[in-house]
Structures are given as C-alpha cells and as structure tokens.
Amino acid sequence: MSMVFDLQWILYTGAIGLIAIGLVGIIWSRHLFRIILSLAIAEAGANLMLVIAGYRLHGHAPIMVAGVWPEQMVDPVPQAMVLTAIVIGVGIQALALSLAIRVKEAYHSLDIDEIRAAMQADIDAQAGVTGDLSQEEPSGREVIGPTVAAEEGRS
C-alpha cells in the first residue's frame, strides 16, 4: 500500500510541478519567447495530469489483444483527449510564435515592458494625447480611445 501511495505521489508531484513552473515562467518572464516556452511547459503538465487521472495500477495498455479484457485496461478516454490536446498545443505554440515574429517586426523588441510602452505611445499618438503630463487630470481632450479620434480625423 505504501508503494501505491508513493507512485501516485511522485506522478502528481511531476504534473503539478510542471504546471507550477510553467505558470511561474509565464508570470515572471519579461521576454516574449520565454513566455511562449513556459506556456508549452504548463500544457505538458496539464496533459500529464489527465493521463494520470485515467491510470489504473497494474493495468494493461488499452489495445485489444487475446487474454486481456477491457476491465483490466487503463481508461482510454483521457488518453484520446490528451492525444488531441498535444496536437492543439503545438498549433497554439505556432500561432503564438508567429504573433511574436509580427511584434518583433513592428516594434523591434521582444521585452514586454518595451512593447507595452511602444504600444501605449502609439495609442496616445493616435488619440492625440501628449503623454503623462499630469497625475491628477487627463492630459488630452480625447481620453476615450484611439478609434474615436481616428474617425473624427477621417471625416
């Protein structure tokens, strides 16, 4: 009984550890590429958690062969879900990397603080706001957003 507890404890430690490391990397990283890598790590942890949920101790692989009955097999449904999730995860990763490449082309940086400052400067320039001149009152006439000012300028 002790061995059973130990095996499950180790497996859940691995899954929760991967998710925790991935989340810490997403929150604490300042580089866009590192954030994408941390997202992949967290995804791997979630996949491992799902496979552990369907695992049965001393079970057989869910493949129909002679002498193995379905009651002796591990649960195949989470495995099918994880199979789909792995492929979707790679798709998400490819999409995120393509967006990172676009950001690099637009702002020539991958540091999220620099990107955020550059985006804020673009929004301010489009809205006609001249930056953070005052902390007490809005510094420009239009504080709603860039779209209103853009429409006014176009008409």
């Binding site: 890598l37 791997a44 996949n47 097999m73 495995q79 994880v82 790679v90 990397l97 490449i101």
Partner: peptide
C-alpha cells in the same frame, strides 16, 4: 503509464515538430 499512443504522439509532435518550429522561430 500504459499510454503508448500518447507517448508516440508526444515524442513525434511535442519533441520533434515543436522543437523544429521553435528553432525556426528563433
């Protein structure tokens, strides 16, 4: 964990294709 199909997909897609995409993006 007795999931050979998931292991196959993870090794091919997760370790192979994902690393290729990441290297090209780098």
């Amino acid at each position: 964990l007795k999931a050979p199909d998931v292991a196959m997909t993870e090794a091919a897609v997760g370790a192979g294709l994902s690393s290729l995409i990441l290297a090209l993006a780098l």
